[in-house]
């Protein structure tokens, strides 16, 4: 068991990191911390992909010049380019999602003055109760 863990230490680290990220995303109350959790989780997946995509002794998938001129076209010399492509796509997605989440967080802060989503709910309920109380007060005044 421990041997396998040591053999796959990159993957084990990626799993632990993504666990940390997911827990933060779910359980943190502060939205900024939630978003940091999201980024940790995404980065863990990139670590996993990068670890899986790396094969010892092979070159990056860019054509190498052969010694006698021409190019080395044997595919066994190079690593698979797809995992790197997936990481790049993942980074793009994660950046745009993070930007969007931060923008919404900013709007929430403008409206409620808090970064805590549960506190925002409490404030909203209080505001609604205030309004209802005022309306019923006004109705009583009119009747009186």
């Amino acid at each position: 068991m421990l041997e396998k863990l040591l053999l796959n230490h990159y993957e084990a680290a990626a799993v632990i990191l993504s666990g940390i990220g997911l827990t933060n995303l779910l359980l943190q109350r502060n939205l900024i911390k939630k978003i940091i959790g999201l980024n940790i989780m995404d980065t863990a997946v990139y670590l996993f992909l990068a670890a899986k995509g790396y094969v010892e002794g092979r070159a990056a998938p860019i054509l190498i010049q052969a010694e006698g001129g021409g190019w080395v076209t044997n595919p066994d010399v190079y690593v698979n380019p797809v995992p790197a492509g997936l990481v790049l796509t993942g980074i793009v997605v994660s950046v745009s999602v993070t930007a969007f989440a931060l923008a919404l967080t900013l709007r929430l802060y403008e409206h409620y003055g808090t970064l805590n989503i549960d506190e925002a709910l409490m404030k909203m309920t209080e505001q609604q109760e205030d309004i209802e109380a005022k309306i019923s007060q006004a109705e009583e005044d009119v009747l009186a």
Binding site: F100, A101, L108, Y112
Partner: peptide, 10 residues
């Protein structure tokens, strides 16, 4: 709506 959207997003 901002609060609902954030909750949905998370």
């Amino acid at each position: 709506t901002v609060r609902a959207a954030l909750r949905y997003l998370v």
